[in-house]
Design a protein around this nucleic acid. Structure first.
Lengths: 123, 123
DNA sequence: CCTAGTGTTATATTTTACTATTACACTATA
DNA sequence: TATAGTGTAATAGTAAAATATAACACTAGG
């Protein structure tokens, strides 16, 4: 797994698994790979993976069953809530950044529009 | 200055000064506060400020004159280039993130639109 | 009951960012 | 020419993240 060295690895692992849950790669109620397997998958240490999992457990997205494994919550509302939360966080961040660069609301909207239109074209 | 503990301080300082240059708070050719004063301003150590400045000097945005001070480049094209680069980076990041959450191009655009329309309303 | 697989925790070590402090090199100016 | 203000660099110490490794607690299945 590719890591951004500006952000803690455990934080990136958490984000990665959240994405898998939200996109349905990991279904509600599904068992996750074991912590040791996850550590291999993302090329990180067991303790680092565990730290990421602990936060997801605390958030109620993952249920831990000692001796059996970790499971995605079956409460789908928690998952949709998580998605809207992540989306909103992203939007707030980019808005704040572009606003701080003196872009008006209109400019922000059109810049997003142009980015989407032109992506893939520029070589 | 408020820091995000997930991102290196020197990196946030660099970003902060870049914003001041792009918004014109710091004009082309203008002298920056001394590194010691900057350290006080942002409540960080001189070495940390220096590390941020070093990267900006390497990028050609800041010119260092030993014994005199640090100055914003007078080449305005470098500044406009920097702005477009920062904006594009932000757009690419948010697009990648939202796309990874399974949002379509249309959904991304409308979510930005709705965010802008509704911000300030939500309490 | 034993064993393999699971989550959990603990210890020691390494790495990196940050800090505190000091010193050095250069410039302007009184 | 002395001095104050500037950038620059080096040293030593602290803190947090990540690693390697080991041990413990629990579950399922033979």
């Amino acid at each position: 797994m590719h890591f951004d060295d500006k952000i803690p690895i455990y934080y990136q692992i958490k984000n990665h698994i959240y994405h898998e849950i939200i996109t349905g790669t990991l279904q509600p109620g599904e068992k996750l790979p074991s912590v040791r397997q996850l550590a291999v998958d993302v090329t990180a240490n067991v303790n680092t993976v565990q730290r990421a999992l602990s936060e997801m457990i605390a958030a109620g997205i993952i249920e831990s069953k000692r001796g059996r494994g970790n499971f995605v919550t079956m409460e789908t509302t928690k998952i949709t809530d998580l998605k809207t939360q992540l989306v909103t966080t992203q939007l707030a961040h980019v808005y704040q950044q572009l606003h701080a660069l003196n872009l008006s609301d209109e400019e922000i909207l059109t810049s997003v529009q142009h980015y989407i239109e032109r992506k893939g074209q520029a070589k």
